[in-house]
Every structure is written in structure tokens, then in C-alpha cells.
């Protein structure tokens, strides 16, 4: 990535974090909602949670959302809706934009001529 693109992306990430994510976090916090416990509960009998999905079926090997940008936004919405966190779904469009900006697949070096062989 070039530095101008890096700077633009950082701006986008910063804006999202402070203008979308944190206000929503504050709102949920004010409503007394928490995604996880941050402290032990002395009254609990156990901290083990029963898993909903206990085995991997063939269809559970397929993860929608990681195959292309086209399915990413919808996959986030589906995931949060099914978890009962519909408040988060409004973050999905911006997250898609961020994913596109942050997308990075490293190039392998192409400096060497194909006519120079590895000898050693």
C-alpha cells in the first residue's frame, strides 16, 4: 500500500472507531448490556458454558463472508442478528468499506529475471 492510501485508511478507521463504534458501545453500556463478563462471579457454580454447536457438520465448514466482499456485509448482519445483537448490524456497511480499504494480499517478489536460476 502506498502512504497516501495508508493515511486515508487510518482516517477511515479512526473515524469509524470514535464516531460509530464508541458511541454505540457507550449506548449499550448505558443500557446495561455487556458482551462478556470481566470479573469472576463468586456465586457461580461453574464457569463452563454449554456449547450450542458441539460437532462440525459438513455444512459448518463453509463460512459465508470470507469468500468475497459481496457476501461480507450480509454475513456480519446475519451473525449479529442470530446472536441477538441487532444493534451491531448498522456497523456492517462501514465495516465493508473498511475491509475494502484495508484489504492486503502480499505480492511475492518479482525482481528476479526468470532466466536467472537458483544454483547454490
Amino acid at each position: 500500500m502506498n502512504s497516501t492510501r495508508d493515511d486515508d485508511t487510518l482516517l477511515e478507521v479512526t473515524r469509524f472507531f470514535f464516531e460509530e463504534l464508541m458511541p454505540l458501545a457507550k449506548k449499550l453500556q448505558d443500557e446495561g448490556k455487556a458482551f462478556f463478563s470481566v470479573k469472576p462471579n463468586p456465586n457461580a457454580q461453574t464457569y463452563y458454558k454449554k456449547r450450542e454447536k458441539t460437532i462440525m457438520h459438513p455444512e459448518s465448514f463453509e463460512v459465508v463472508g470470507c469468500d468475497s466482499f459481496d457476501s461480507f456485509e450480509e454475513a456480519l448482519i446475519d451473525m449479529w442478528t442470530s446472536q441477538g445483537y441487532s444493534e451491531l448490524t448498522k456497523l456492517a456497511p462501514t465495516l465493508l468499506k473498511l475491509a475494502k480499504s484495508l484489504y492486503f494480499v502480499e505480492e511475492q517478489s518479482e525482481d528476479i529475471s526468470p532466466f536467472i536460476y537458483v544454483m547454490f
Binding site: 470481566v38 464457569y47 463452563y48 458454558k49 456449547r51 458441539t54
Partner: peptide, 12 residues
Amino acid sequence: RIELFQEINYPH
């Protein structure tokens, strides 16, 4: 068959 029935989650 592998079955995982209990777990502890992040941040713990």
C-alpha cells in the same frame, strides 16, 4: 466423531 460440549470464553 469429535464433540466439544463445554467451553470457557475470552477474556478468561
